[in-house]
Write a protein that binds this DNA or RNA. Structure first.
Lengths: 228, 228
DNA sequence: GGAACTTTTCTTGTATACCAAAATAGAGTA
DNA sequence: TACTCTATTTTGGTATACAAGAAAAGTTCC
């Protein structure tokens, strides 16, 4: 609300939640590899690094744990989780479950008259990003398309349940590149088309295939980096 | 609070996480109705009530928010969430999605040789509790059966994703009683049987039906208590 | 009397300092 | 070398203080 209009200068962010800030920074550090897997995250170290007190750091670490990025042990603090192939497989299983359902719901809602304009926009942005070879944007837009489909489902609880998964996805896709952008573009096109035309069963099926087809390439790409 | 001789007296209760303790107490208060819907949860109030500092209270409230029991607003603290019929419907939708999938996975794993002994035990405990009319135990065991099925799926991420739902279930089922215990017992029997005999598709179907059949009675029971 | 404006009183969010207990590292000893 | 005992580090927890936003209470003006 009002906070959005606050000055962007980093110094003056008095009233902005520092915990959120720290969360984003540490998350960034984890997905970019600055905080490697197994690295300890010390409260005081982070609080000095980001020039905040321990309280926001504690809150951020708690959230990172709940979102599956770090593991904490009593009296031993937090360490960046070790990502395993099992984790990747579990993620794809749960995604199949929730995102395919979300796609069906989204198509149903569009058929009932809800607008899917944002999805259309994202799809087109993604197309031009692929044509122009902007890889970073392609990955970002792909995630945003998936997120928008879930949002279109209209189920708040579903949206909240999926949110932690997207963080993990970003982490994993940062380690292993996906299949060719053209293949993904075509699948996204077909999926979004089914949703925007209000065809629930087709949308479900396409979402399921799209996600499942992404599993093997990612596993293959990570097989040499991760433990089972 | 100031002059209290707290050093040794408080040390008595061992080093176990106070935040967890506070979380459980407040959660109990919410599901039992002690903290009614819309009631404000003040940090200092709770910290004095449970004789801890504000830090564990903060942590507990953060977890309660993430689990959907309270809503927090910047600089205005936390209030017990207002449960709506939409919430209930969304919960059932997501449960359908995740628990039916978990049932299928559980059956697959049992077919692969994993033990379902705990599920068998819970089922039998539940049967005797129903026969002896111990209503509280019946509700508790019913939830435990559902949790055990998810656990049997072997997917950690799935288990973690479902955990917040069970809290909500307990809350909702505390407000509206479910269908007859005998009906539920039979459905649980059939479902567990399918899992323990390693029949994934049947387990999926039975889980789906069992959950979906529970929706209407709960909605009907809550229709006069909640807003849309 | 009621609406708009101005304090005043909470309450949260954060910072800082401190303590106790556990884990770790290190030194000394058999 | 292996083992025990101590010292350091680090976390988890607490108390206290203060700034700022939100709500409440006065206050003024029509």
């Amino acid at each position: 609300m009002v906070a959005d209009a606050m000055p962007e200068s980093l110094k003056g962010r008095d009233d902005e939640a520092r915990a959120e800030h720290v969360y984003q920074l540490v998350l960034e550090g984890i997905v970019t590899g600055e905080f490697g897997q197994g690295m300890r995250l010390r409260e005081r170290e982070l609080s000095e690094m980001y020039d905040v007190s321990r309280i926001p750091v504690r809150e951020a670490i708690q959230r990172l744990e709940q979102d599956g990025f770090v593991a904490t042990f009593p009296r031993r603090g937090a360490v960046v989780r070790q990502l395993t192939l099992t984790d990747v497989n579990e993620l794809f299983d749960v995604r199949l479950c929730l995102e395919a359902f979300a796609a069906r719901m989204a198509a149903t809602r569009v058929a009932e008259g809800h607008s899917g304009g944002r999805l259309q926009e994202l799809l087109e942005e993604s197309r031009t990003a692929i044509d122009e070879g902007r890889t970073d944007d392609v990955v970002r837009l792909s995630t945003q398309i998936h997120a928008e489909i879930v949002r279109l489902s209209g189920n708040r609880l579903l949206i909240d349940s999926v949110k932690p998964l997207f963080g993990r996805m970003r982490w994993i896709f940062g380690l292993a590149h996906n299949r060719s952008n053209e293949l993904q573009r075509d699948e996204h096109s077909a999926l979004c088309d089914a949703i925007l035309k209000g065809r629930p069963d087709l949308a479900y099926s396409l979402a399921y295939s799209h996600i499942e087809l992404g599993r093997e390439p990612v596993l293959a790409g990570l097989a040499n980096q991760l433990e089972p």
